[in-house]
Design a protein around this nucleic acid. Structure first.
Lengths: 246, 246
DNA sequence: CGGCCGCTGTTTGTATACAATCTGGCGTCA
DNA sequence: TGACGCCAGATTGTATACAAACAGCGGCCG
């Protein structure tokens, strides 16, 4: 398949420790989820059940459960009788992801502003410091860490807002955003994001929900503005012509 | 069986036709989902894998996939080594459901106002007529149809808004709302809901997104106001101990 | 008489075997 | 030469067998 580049599943590995507690399927699912969100597994990569099973020393039964879970998260696409692939969001799907984020996250930020405790704010501050450190570092692994950290802040704000359902939904949106950035991102991370993150946290500290919501809205606009939805299309145009995909 | 009250899984059955297309797990999942949302399966009911498998003439492998899917939808709760149960949202979870709906649905209504085509509006009108008919009918099955129809309108508005991700999320919220109503609902359906539905569709027709959003917000408030979060805890306990009629 | 312990049936968790389906290549035929 | 069809290998879909965990119960001991 033309979709799978040289990036294979080499650098995913079982941590070998946590499997004593919780489902083994959950362990595999989280490991793969992390790998996908971190761009260690490229969109389009095929995930063969036996291969994953060998990697994690689990039977296909368990692997299948994990893959189904990832499909529900939207980071993996299941094609009947064909297998599981890391999702390749279309430009339209990508737009919908950011539309959803614009609809949800400002409200979440506003809620967070009224509910943030001193401990919450301390955690967010610590996060901002981490981001600054990561931004100074170089190299691809630092880049990956920076991508993940950026999404994590949004997730932490959602956690402060205190609605588990919305937090879970946002987690899915952020995962999908990561795929979208992998496909259509111009720069990997826009450095202006860090400043905007700081402004948002400042607004939370002032309990200024309206400003926080407004800043969040613009921040998401900026993230999306850094995408080029046409970039990915020409590569996959060939796929579309020969594929009966809508 | 101790856990299962009078409501068992008797009136769920395989339609026997559609299994030629799509996963068999998906068929089971949808049948169970419908049964739960329609209040034919009460919250707390245990779903034994073998039992479901016998009902649908499928092996446990397939049933497990269906149950896992339902767990992702939030209508079923999986307890490790204990089994699958129809979810019983706590009052706190119920509040979060409506908080999420208040955050998402007004925005969805506003988007629908700008995008609704004549065909969309015709579909919504037809839906309002159906609701009126169902409201006039009597009997428990008409009640169930009315509950379902009420949720369906919200879902149709989301569809008009044109964001698949948000539509799917709302579908989950509505499913959970149905469980919440089963547990904490005072009246099964508030008849004022129909009037409010009509007002919202009217606003969509006028392309008045602001009013539509506002009406939707109040509508959700009214739905939640019809709940009694304290009632459920003791009343449902009784439901489980004694065998109340279906 | 009451509480603890181990037994047994039931239910879930996992592995594996087999069937169905897809992919890709080769040979035949027009 | 090109296209069609068929065969072989690989991969997924499903059923089943076995192991582990849980729940209820009866007996034993304090």
């Amino acid at each position: 398949m033309a979709g799978a580049p040289g990036v294979a599943m080499d650098d995913i590995q079982d941590d070998g420790v946590s499997q004593k507690v919780g489902d083994r399927a959950a362990v595999i699912r989280e490991a793969l989820h992390d790998a996908i969100v971190d761009h260690r597994l490229a969109p389009g990569t095929k995930l063969v059940e036996d291969e994953v099973g060998t990697l994690f020393k689990a039977s296909r039964t368990v692997v299948r459960a994990a893959l189904q879970g990832l499909a529900f998260d939207g980071v993996v696409t299941l094609e009947r009788n064909r297998g599981a692939y890391v999702s390749r969001p279309t430009p339209e799907e990508a737009r919908q992801v950011f539309h959803a984020r614009r609809l949800v996250e400002p409200g979440l930020a506003a809620a967070a502003a009224t509910r943030a405790t001193a401990a919450d704010l301390a955690l967010l501050d610590a996060h901002l410091r981490d981001e600054a450190t990561l931004g100074a570092a170089r190299g691809p692994s630092a880049r990956r860490a920076e991508i993940r950290a950026s999404g994590d802040l949004h997730l932490k704000i959602a956690t402060v807002a205190g609605n588990d359902l919305l937090t879970r939904f946002l987690k899915e949106l952020i995962s999908r955003s990561s795929l979208v950035i992998a496909l259509y991102g111009r720069t990997t991370v826009s450095s202006c994001g860090r400043d905007e993150h700081r402004s948002i946290v400042d607004a939370l500290r002032r309990r200024d929900g309206v400003t926080a919501a407004d800043l969040m809205h613009h921040h998401i606009d900026h993230i999306e503005a850094d995408l080029d939805y046409r970039a990915g299309e020409e590569a996959s145009l060939k796929d579309i012509v020969f594929d009966t995909d809508g």
